[in-house]
C-alpha cells in the first residue's frame, strides 16, 4: 500500500480536509505530493493516515493550517523518538 498513489480528489474526500487546507499543508511541507501542477497532484496512500490525523486535530481543536503543521511536525518527532526508544528497549535485557 505504501507505493500506491491516490489522486487529489480522492485524497481530499478520504482525509476529511478541504482542498484549500491540503494546498496550504503542502506549502508548509506536511504533505509531499507527486506532480507539479495542483491538478496533477497525487499522494502516496501511506500519507492518508497523517491527513486523517490532521483532519481530526483541526476539527477537534479548531486549529489553523499553520498551527496544524507545527503540531504535526512535533507529533512526527515524538513518534520517531518513540520508535527509537522501542528499538533501544529491544536491546535491553528483560
Amino acid at each position: 500500500m505504501d507505493h500506491e498513489l491516490i489522486v487529489f480528489a480522492e485524497f481530499e474526500s478520504a482525509s476529511g480536509l478541504t482542498r484549500a487546507e491540503i494546498v496550504e499543508l503542502v506549502e508548509y511541507g506536511v504533505f509531499a505530493p507527486t506532480g507539479t501542477a495542483i491538478e496533477q497532484w497525487a499522494f502516496p496512500e501511506s500519507m492518508l493516515e497523517l491527513a486523517r490525523v490532521a483532519a481530526r486535530l483541526r476539527a477537534d481543536f479548531e486549529l489553523a493550517p499553520s498551527t496544524l503543521a507545527l503540531v504535526l511536525a512535533y507529533r512526527e518527532r515524538v513518534l520517531e523518538l518513540e520508535r527509537r526508544v522501542c528499538e533501544l528497549e529491544c536491546r535491553l535485557p528483560r
Partner: peptide
C-alpha cells in the same frame, strides 16, 4: 473541552 481534549485526544 479544550483542556480535556488535549488530555484525551487519541492522536496525542
Amino acid at each position: 473541552y479544550r483542556r480535556l481534549a488535549r488530555k484525551y485526544h487519541p492522536d496525542l
